[in-house]
Amino acid sequence: MFRRIGGRLKSNGYPEPCRRINHDPETHAHIMKLRQAILTSVGRKALMALSGVMLSLFLFAHGAGNAVAFLGSEALNSYAAKLHSLSFAVIFFECVLLAAFVLHILLGMSLFLENSQARPVRYQVERSSAQRTPGSRTMPYSGVVILIFIAVHLVNFHFTDRSIPAAELVRKVLRQPFYVFFHISAMAVLALHISHGFWSLFQSLGLSHPKYDAALKNSTLGLALLLSALFIVIPLCTLFIDEFLL
């Protein structure tokens, strides 16, 4: 290649190896260790994206599992019992999920704090182009709302009396109008988070391309609506249909 693009030939007929003009050790740092690379802005965004993928996969599994509720209380109870009988697998996935959450939250916070320092004096007039979306503007804030929701949700459904059958537990929690309102609002915020997140993760991982950008944008929107709808319909049914899960 060097010969082709004009490198001189050494007397033995081989092209001279690539020689650096600039030997300044500061500008020519040695190749980064993976650990160092992970801590850069791009490295942390890539991990943000990967943990986001894991959280999204969990949301899908969780949503699909919850949909069993539409088959009636018996189906839900036996599904829940089956799931809990797989105790080892459940604990394993819970640990993976917890790790993904902790990573996502800690990295998100570190990025947010750094970003808030990158422009010490703000503009007098802040006018965005049409490119920012409601989702992209609010990522850290929607994230915190999701976190609060998850804490409340776990107290209600996980760290509770586990001897109660699943269907009964759902009815106990989701027939409180105030709680259902909170639940639905949080799911709308989740939709907002995903409406940027799912598109964004492809960009962060370097996988996006103008060729399918429009398709990615549309499926992101569809995914956000589908997932949140799944999590909104069940509380609504439980609250408003008296015989749901009875």
């Binding site: 740092a29 850069t40 942390r44 990025l111 970003n115 490119q131 992209s136 598109w199 964004s200 960009q203």
Partner: peptide, 17 residues
């Protein structure tokens, strides 16, 4: 990328601005 971080630029949030 390393130098960009050191220089005090923020992190890309894919906002497209």
């Amino acid at each position: 990328v390393k130098r960009m971080d050191e220089l005090g630029f923020g992190n890309c949030g894919n906002e497209r601005e």
